[in-house]
C-alpha cells in the first residue's frame, strides 16, 4: 500500500497505457494506408541492392529492326545522368508509363532502353504506335541483364549518375507524380 501512496499518479497513468498503445498502433496503420493510397508506401516494395553501387555493365545487342542504336557499357558512365528503363511490348503498365518517358525525352533526359524478354518485331510495333523516347536501345532476350540489375518486373527504371553509380530505382510504372516528386529532384542533384 505504501508504494501506491508514494506514487499514485504513475500507477493511474499505467491504466491508460493499453489505450495509448492502441492509439499509437491506429495512427501507424492510418499512416500506412495513406501512404499506400498516394503511392509513397508499398508493402510489397523491395529496396534495390544496387543503390550507391556501380551500374552493371551491359553488353547487349541493339534491338533489331529499330533505327535507334545500341549502347556500349561505357554509356553508363558518360558524365551525364542517364535513365535505364526496362520495358516490353507485352507489358501493360509500360503503356501507362510511356507518356512520362516521352516527356522526359522531350526535356532532354537521356533514356537508355532495355527491351526485356520481347520479340523484336513486336517491340518495334510498340514504339511505332506509342513513340520512341530512347536515345539508345538494347535487347535483353534472355532476361540476364534484368537479373544483373536485380529486376523483378517490368517496367523498372534506374537512375545512373554521370559516374556510373545507381542512385535510384523505381519498380512499376512511373506516373507524372513520380517524375515530379522523386525523379526531378534527383536529376537536378546529379545533373
Amino acid at each position: 500500500m505504501s508504494g501506491a501512496q508514494r506514487s499514485p499518479l504513475p500507477r493511474r497513468a499505467l491504466l491508460w497505457a493499453p489505450l495509448g498503445l492502441a492509439a499509437a498502433g491506429g495512427v501507424g496503420f492510418w499512416a500506412m494506408l495513406r501512404g499506400m493510397k498516394d503511392g509513397s508506401y508499398d508493402p510489397r516494395g523491395v529496396p534495390s541492392a544496387l543503390i550507391g553501387k556501380p551500374a552493371p555493365r551491359l553488353a547487349l545487342p541493339p534491338l533489331e529492326g529499330v533505327a535507334t542504336p545500341g549502347f556500349a557499357p561505357e554509356a553508363l558512365a558518360s558524365g551525364r545522368p542517364v535513365l535505364v528503363n526496362f520495358w516490353a511490348s507485352w507489358c501493360v503498365p509500360c503503356v501507362i508509363e510511356h507518356p512520362q518517358l516521352m516527356a522526359l525525352q522531350a526535356r532532354g533526359v537521356r533514356l537508355l532502353g532495355v527491351n526485356y524478354k520481347d520479340k523484336a518485331p513486336e517491340a518495334g510495333r510498340f514504339l511505332q504506335r506509342h513513340g520512341n523516347p530512347f536515345s539508345a536501345l538494347v535487347a535483353d532476350a534472355e532476361g540476364r541483364a534484368g537479373i544483373e540489375y536485380g529486376l523483378y518486373g517490368v517496367p523498372e527504371t534506374y537512375l545512373v549518375d554521370g559516374g556510373g553509380i545507381v542512385r535510384w530505382r523505381w519498380a512499376g510504372p512511373m506516373t507524372p507524380d513520380t517524375v515530379s516528386a522523386e525523379l526531378d529532384p534527383l536529376l537536378r542533384r546529379h545533373a
Binding site: V46, A49, G150, Y152
Partner: peptide, 8 residues
C-alpha cells in the same frame, strides 16, 4: 544473387 537482389 544476394549482391543483386539484397537481403530480401
Amino acid at each position: 544473387i544476394h549482391d543483386r537482389y539484397g537481403d530480401f
